[in-house]
């Protein structure tokens, strides 16, 4: 997930580069239209490569940065069982990041370069991970809503035209449903608890609902290169379509929990069977993307510090490997 088209505003991807002939582009589009998978070494338009690189690396960064808000509660999980579950969940997110970096590397950019771009602010990650996790209920809300939204977005990506990305997504989607269920399970337990616990669950829903809807990215009318991504079959559904699907499945779950979705305009349209919902505060979305969310600075600082703290381990492992390689050669 986390592929919310973060930098769509103001930038238009060029649809062709100077050296690419119309025949080449045509043949490529025909392959895509025929649902043929594009593989790492196949010819592809430079803009296709750029779009994928941006999307997959953003997606990878989001998985990695996304470990921080949940990691915040690892040492304070209420029971040993919850702690073991959360640990496994956060570890999965690390794995997702690695699958995706691995897929992105097939497009010709090194892992180190991608990490450097994240730390310098050149590369973006999902806005959702710049919100703080204030209570244990936030861990429930994240699994239920954030992973829930991620699943909506990721399932169609399993059919993405780029083979390595599609295969990474299959692997990820298999692991996600555990994430969403453990979150719902936390919310369920709180919602059946005492008044204080119920209030905690409601408060978490209040804070995470709108940022979760923003995860799907800008409205279709403001989404500049969606059409090209659709034509290339990188994307299968528009931002608004996926957001609508998410609202439709999630509102009844909130009702089951006895929680109120914080939207006065929310109502079901009996004719269409879809929920209608209030306007999203896009200013907040763009502010968070621009680096001014509650936790942006902290997230990048922490990731950068981890890189610095781990340097001696990487150096030592390399020195050890080099020493053994020379010993074996001698």
């Amino acid at each position: 997930m986390y592929t919310q088209g973060l930098d769509q505003k103001g930038k238009v991807v060029q649809s062709s580069d100077a050296s690419e002939s119309a025949d080449q582009l045509d043949a490529f589009q025909k392959r895509v239209d025929a649902e043929d998978k594009i593989e790492a070494k196949d010819w592809m338009p430079a803009a296709y490569r750029r779009t994928l690189l941006r999307q997959i690396s953003q997606h990878a960064h989001s998985e990695i940065i996304g470990m921080q808000p949940e990691g915040n509660w690892l040492t304070r999980a209420p029971t040993l069982k919850r702690k073991a579950i959360l640990l496994a969940k956060v570890q999965d997110e690390a794995g997702h990041g690695l699958y995706l970096y691995s897929a992105a590397e097939t497009l010709g950019v090194s892992r180190d370069q991608m990490v450097a771009d994240l730390l310098s602010g050149k590369a973006k990650y999902s806005s959702i991970f710049n919100y703080p996790t204030l209570t244990w209920a936030d861990i429930g809300a994240i699994g239920w809503l954030v992973d829930g939204a991620a699943i909506m977005n990721q399932i169609p990506l399993c059919r993405c035209s780029y083979g390595p990305y599609a295969r990474a997504m299959v692997r990820i989607c298999k692991e996600e449903s555990f994430h969403q269920r453990q979150g719902f399970d936390i919310m369920f337990e709180l919602s059946r608890g005492n008044d204080e616990q119920k209030a905690m669950a409601q408060d978490a829903l209040n804070r995470w609902w709108w940022p979760s809807l923003m995860m799907f990215g800008p409205n279709d009318s403001d989404s500049k290169h969606s059409a090209q991504s659709m034509a290339w079959k990188i994307k299968r559904f528009s931002n608004d379509e996926l957001r609508q699907k998410f609202v439709d499945v999630t509102v009844p779950q909130a009702e089951f929990l006895g929680l109120r979705v914080p939207d006065d305009d929310l109502s079901i349209n009996d004719k269409t069977g879809h929920y209608e919902f209030g306007d999203i505060d896009w200013q907040e979305f763009y502010d968070v993307l621009a680096g001014n969310g509650p936790c942006n600075r902290q997230r990048i600082e922490k990731r950068g510090q981890a890189q610095v703290d781990g340097a001696w381990v990487r150096d030592a492992a390399r020195a050890y490997a080099d020493k053994h390689a020379t010993a074996a050669a001698a």
Binding site: Y99, A168, E175, A317, R318
Partner: peptide, 24 residues
């Protein structure tokens, strides 16, 4: 084929592959 990992040497590559691709 499942994907790739970075590692300093062969043994570490096996360990990383195990932790990354076979957690279940």
């Amino acid at each position: 084929h499942a994907g790739s990992v970075h590692a300093a040497d062969d043994q570490m590559a096996l360990d990383h592959a195990r932790d990354t691709y076979t957690r279940r």
